[in-house]
Structure formats: C-alpha cells, structure tokens
Simulated scan of single mutants.
Amino acid sequence: MRQSLLERIRQLSDQIYPEIINHRRWLHQNPELSFEEVQTSEYIANELNKLKIPFKKGIAGTGIIATIEGKSTNGPVVGLRADMDALPIQENSGLEFSSKKEGVMHACGHDAHSASLLGVAKILTQIKDSWEGTALLIFQPGEEKFPGGASLILKEGALNDPKPDIIIGQHVLPEMESGNVGFKPGMYMASGDEVHITVKGKGGHAAMPHTLNDTVLAASQIVVALQQVVSRIVPATIPTVLSFGHIEGKGATNIIPETVYLAGTLRTMNEEWREKIKTKIREIAKHTASAYGCECTIDIKDGYPMVFNNELVTQKALEMASVYLGQDQVEVMDTRMTAEDFGYYSQEFPCTFYRFGVKQKHDITGALHTPQFNLNEESLKTASGLMAFIAIGFLNTQS
C-alpha cells in the first residue's frame, strides 16, 4: 500500500504544481512585513475555503491554523508549519513577478513555504481516505521579528486543542541542489540573543588620559575579555558564538567620550548554558569596566531559543524522504549558528525542521536576506509532495 500511496502523492504533486507556482508568485508580488500579513492571511483563507478546510484566523494577529481530519480522528495530531512574513529589503532580482511593494521583499523564501503548505493542504484533502488522525496547518506570522510568531501562538494556547504530537517545518536552502533535502538530528540551529553594553566614565582630552577614565580602552578590553566566555568557560562540545558588530563612542581624535556603546550577538546550542553565559557576560563586563575606573550597564535581550530536532522524529522523517526522493537526494547537514523561531516549538513538542534545496540550474541563486534572492520553482514540487508524504508517515495510515 505504501508504494501506491507514494505514487498517488507524486501524481498529485505534479498535478497541482502550476497552482503552487501561482500561489508563490502572488505571495512574492505582495509581501508583507512581520505581523502585518493582512493580505497574505486573506489570500490563504480564500484558498482554504476553496478546499473546504476549516480554519481559525487571527492567530497571533494575522496567523491561521487549519484543520484537516483523515477518515477518522483516532490517529495522531501532526502540525505542519509555514511562515508568512517578508523582509524590509528592496528587491533587485529581475523577476517578472518581483515585489510590488517598495522596500519589502520575500528574501527568505517564506512565500515558498506558504505556497508549499497550501499544496500540502490540497494533497492531504484529496487522499483523506488513506490516513487517520488530524493534520494542523500552521500559517505563522512574524518569524523574522522578535518576539516571533511561534512564541505568540504558544502563549495564546492556539495549539492546546488539539495539541500536536509532533510539529514539522521546512525551509529553503539556496546552497543545496533543487530536489534535494537535508536533515540534522539533535542540535540544529542556535539560540539568538542580543547583548547591549554601555560603558560610562569621565571623558576628557585624549592628550591627558591620567585625568579621565578611558571608556574606549575599557570597552575594548570588555570585548577582548568576553572572548574567554567562549574559549575558556563554555564546554567545547557546545557550539557557541559571541560576536560584537557595533562599537560606538562619540569622541574624536583628541576627545575620549564619556560613553561607549557595544552591541553584539550571543548564539549557543544549549539552553542551560545559555543562561550561564549571560551571567558570565554581566560579571566580566562589570569587573573589566571597574578595573578601568568605569561603570557599565548590560542589557541582554532574549531572542529565539535553539532549534532541537528530536532524534526519533527526524530519523523517521529522513527515512521517509529517502523513500520519496531516493537516498542520493537526502543529505545530513551540519549545525547552523543562525536562529529561527521554530525553536519555540522544538522546546515544547517533538519536532523536526529540515531544509529543501532551491539552487538554480543555470542562474545565480542569491543568498538569503539579499535583494537578489530567487529560487528554482521546481523545488516547490518536492516541498509540497515530500511534506505531505512525511506527514502521513506520522499519521495512522494504511501505508
């Protein structure tokens, strides 16, 4: 039965491919920033109505959660997530269906994610006779902007009834060949926190440093000293990055300013050590500033938690992908120090978050979050069909 179901999904994926392309292009032309996805939400709602799929609107503001039940509801509940928001980037891709909105662009593939999930919705609806349980389609707003739509969905209790047994998410990857997918069990993506440090002291004439507190020197030493957090405090087995990309001291060649401002990012793969690192940052920064006669305030803004892929769920999804695509098209990926608000789901539910390749065959595929980003639309056939197949693999099916 698995083979016949496999072929059914492949055939459906081929049949609805033009629809998925139309969805993606409409969404691409009409991007909306985080938590402003009003038109996007209306478009998705209209498509769900055409499929006669019940849904709830207004989740975390503009989100939608749709429910598809199989031939019975005795089976598991499987959540399938797609994000909907775009980025504040002026598009320069040269596409005929480029963004119509000045300074707003789908430069991270969320248009492809939502279009693919609409494709999954149609596939699952047309083969309801082949599976039991409930599929939750989570069209999520605000992935790109803190506090993240995932956190708000969980805070609102939108996934409490029914409560997913697992949640599956996918994301484009421009570096990967179109038609391929990649999985990483366990630690996959890092948490992402912002570190803001303000150093204050007595400024003055740079030619007379003995009469002042050198805030620039103190701030510089803080940056150097904090590198020990990664190299000497955090276990080497836990991937961690602490980088400062902004230093601002409004002095001059002959003026030491009274205030110097530092801003950086903290990334790690362990939630327990994430909190310990923040304590060490505060201690080291304050003591270092004090050693130079300065004071400092530290403000660490909590970002997204790490994405942890449940080993059992991810291994099964990988095996399903190997059946659907063939083993040669399934890759095991490395960890990534970038962050994703899917991490909120992975802290609450068994999850897997995988990548699907969108690399162009001939043209240059721009990197994520750039004005030139584009994708090979043939990859959307893989994205819809595979996600539907994996979902059914976790539902109580006849396959």
Rank of each mutant, 00 (worst) to 15 (best):
residue 296 C to Y: 03
residue 150 A to H: 08
residue 278 K to M: 14
residue 113 H to S: 12
residue 144 E to S: 04
residue 7 E to W: 09
residue 357 G to I: 14
residue 136 L to H: 06
residue 55 F to H: 10
residue 55 F to L: 09
residue 132 E to I: 00
residue 271 E to C: 00
residue 369 H to S: 09
residue 209 P to W: 08
residue 263 A to Y: 05
residue 86 A to T: 04
residue 160 N to R: 12
residue 97 F to V: 10
residue 335 T to H: 07
residue 208 M to Q: 14
residue 245 G to A: 01
residue 159 L to P: 05
residue 142 G to R: 06
residue 187 M to Y: 11
residue 84 M to W: 15
residue 347 Q to T: 08
residue 318 L to M: 14
residue 335 T to I: 15
residue 399 S to V: 02
residue 90 Q to L: 15
residue 53 I to A: 09
residue 393 G to P: 01
residue 348 E to W: 00
residue 286 K to M: 06
residue 279 T to M: 11
residue 388 A to R: 01
residue 10 R to N: 12
residue 241 V to Q: 09
residue 390 I to P: 10
residue 5 L to T: 13
residue 245 G to V: 07
residue 204 G to Y: 06
residue 37 E to T: 01
residue 300 I to R: 00
residue 303 G to T: 11
residue 264 G to W: 04
residue 132 E to C: 08
residue 86 A to E: 03
residue 246 H to S: 14
residue 161 D to M: 04
residue 341 D to L: 03
residue 242 L to Y: 12
residue 147 P to M: 03
residue 151 S to W: 02
residue 69 E to H: 02
residue 218 A to S: 07
residue 293 G to I: 07
residue 352 T to V: 12
residue 13 S to Y: 03
residue 173 L to Y: 05
residue 340 E to P: 00
residue 306 M to A: 15
residue 374 N to V: 06
residue 252 A to G: 14
residue 40 T to S: 04
residue 86 A to Q: 06
residue 27 L to K: 07
residue 136 L to T: 02
residue 135 A to S: 15
residue 161 D to I: 03
residue 45 A to I: 00
residue 110 H to P: 05
residue 310 N to M: 10
residue 80 L to H: 09
residue 319 E to A: 07
residue 108 C to G: 07
residue 40 T to N: 02
residue 241 V to C: 12
residue 221 Q to D: 10
residue 325 L to W: 10
